[in-house]
Design a protein around this nucleic acid. Structure first.
Lengths: 139, 139
DNA sequence: CTTGACTCTCACGCCAATGTGAGGGTCCAA
DNA sequence: TTGGACCCTCACATTGGCGTGAGAGTCAAG
């Protein structure tokens, strides 16, 4: 299987621009034809899927670049291939957990606002001038 | 209580630059002395804390600017002052929930990677070139 | 009055991933 | 051979929260 960048883009749903960017960041290295065209194979499809997964997890390209060499293509996706990357993975996991904690804390704050608002439910909604002025701040 | 920006920065642990930025974004409006100096009070301290909480939760300043006018300072937490914001609050709550879901999904993906790595535990650790690079983890 | 700490307002820089567009080659089918 | 689809390489723009520095004013202590 030999595809050029446009086809790989279609296969993966990732923009051509992003594919070139991943290459620039050392995440992909397609074969170059004499014309300068990039040529990819099935392995690259899996790699791109792995990249997207990790990006979605909030990892940056530098981290992904470290992890990729440790992964092998099992035909469907990438799976890790060496245990040395475990500390990195755990670190990233901790980061995600912390992010979740932050979000939940903020959501709790929102919930408090919502609950209190419901119980107060002021008889004079007009009292909140801010409703008329989108950008207004504390009066 | 009357503090200027440097002291507020010390009280909140937020940089002077950030405090000015929050003002620029409509999140704070300190009194201005004739000299042009900003002057803050205790209420601003709580406001800044609220801002940091929401920023940490991934809300942007525009959203925070919408929420802030509906809060009053009760010393520790912030409580709502108008019910007109309820739909917005619910919308933000939903967004936060979705963000949490996404992060958890990403974390699950990471967990899968971690679990697979553990079980594979390759017989040839040297195969992972990443381990030899400066930024690599545990030698 | 001087000095030094503090403050002010611009205004440019940075990061990260990606969009966008210019200007120009390549390939293939009609 | 031509035209249109595809590809190339720059290179600048974007978004948001903030760092940083220049040039200048303010203020209180010595």
């Amino acid at each position: 299987m030999c595809v050029r960048i446009g086809e790989l883009s279609r296969l993966t749903g990732v923009s051509v621009r992003s594919l070139r960017y991943y290459e620039e960041q050392g995440l992909l290295d397609p074969v170059r034809l004499p014309s300068g065209y990039r040529e990819y194979d099935e392995g690259h499809v899996s790699t791109v899927r792995g990249i997207r997964l990790m990006l979605a997890a909030g990892l940056n390209t530098a981290t992904i670049a470290e992890l990729l060499p440790c992964m092998t293509d099992d035909g469907q996706a990438l799976s890790p291939n060496c245990s040395g990357m475990l500390p990195d993975l755990h670190r990233e996991r901790a980061r995600l957990t912390e992010a979740v904690t932050d979000l939940l804390a903020a959501r709790d704050a929102l919930d408090t606002l919502i609950a209190t608002t419901r119980t107060l439910d002021p008889p004079d909604p007009q009292a909140c001038q801010a409703l008329a002025r989108p950008n207004a701040v504390r009066p």
